[in-house]
Design a protein around this nucleic acid. Sequence first.
DNA 1: AATATTGTCAACCGCCACCCC
DNA 2: CGGGGTGGCGGTTGACAATAT
Length: 259
Amino acid sequence: MGRKPCCEKIGLKRGPWTIEEDHKLMNFILNNGIRCWRLVPKLAGLLRCGKSCRLRWINYLRPDLKRGALSEMEEDQIIQLHSRLGNRWSKIAAHFPGRTDNEIKNYWNTRIKKRLKLQGLDPVTHKPIEQEKDEGLKIEPLDTRRFQEIPAVPQKELQENCRSDSDETVDLLHDYEMLWEELDMGLSSDNPEICSLTKYYSPSISLEVSFNPSCSTGESSSLQEDSGQCWINNVENSVPPSWDGLHDVEDIFHFENHQ
DNA sequence: AATATTGTCAACCGCCACCCC
DNA sequence: CGGGGTGGCGGTTGACAATAT
């Protein structure tokens, strides 16, 4: 007998998220917060496992995410941190509010590694490759004591990142609106960063309209701008499922059995 | 224009630490 | 204390896009 999977895989959807799924997850979390990831997909009406929902939220849907390429300064900071922390991506990401560990890991693997190699540095040890050969590939073990020397996230950032759930939800809604405002501006100003973002959202336009006929007026050009606002409206006006509606664990299994 | 190669990044997998009973 | 459940993390994969041939 192997390890039991984290969730019932049978019948669960995998692969890229559709805009409808994003919408459901976003709606649910913004209105209810997160208490238990395993239950989120059930309550939000998604055929995904909790892990998948968590990942999607953290890496993509969180409204406080920063978008776009990292600056050279950020890149240098990542190299500095990596030399001290190693592949502890979540620890490194903690120094970059709005950036995810997955993003930094990807950035490291696809760009920084290459950059270091071009500079003749080993991306693992951060030492000159020649020097490393001399030392006979002797790799120093990580000195965990040094981790304590890493400057923590500034107090202000910590306070900003560690507020209560309710504050966070209000802020998320606000950030969410800001995101769409940026999107709208980006669509009209050919901002490449926003465009790369909308690349993933663009398929939503028709879907969005099909969900909400009240949004389907107007020409296609204004449709894109409207769709963002419609989504926000949906988030604010819809009556979503909630944790309160779940009185008993038995409810969940009852729910599962009747899917 | 067609095909091959390379780059990017979202998503998955499996392991581990922590918490609760 | 031990076992099960859950969340979090890091490594890896695979689809798609961009670029080269």
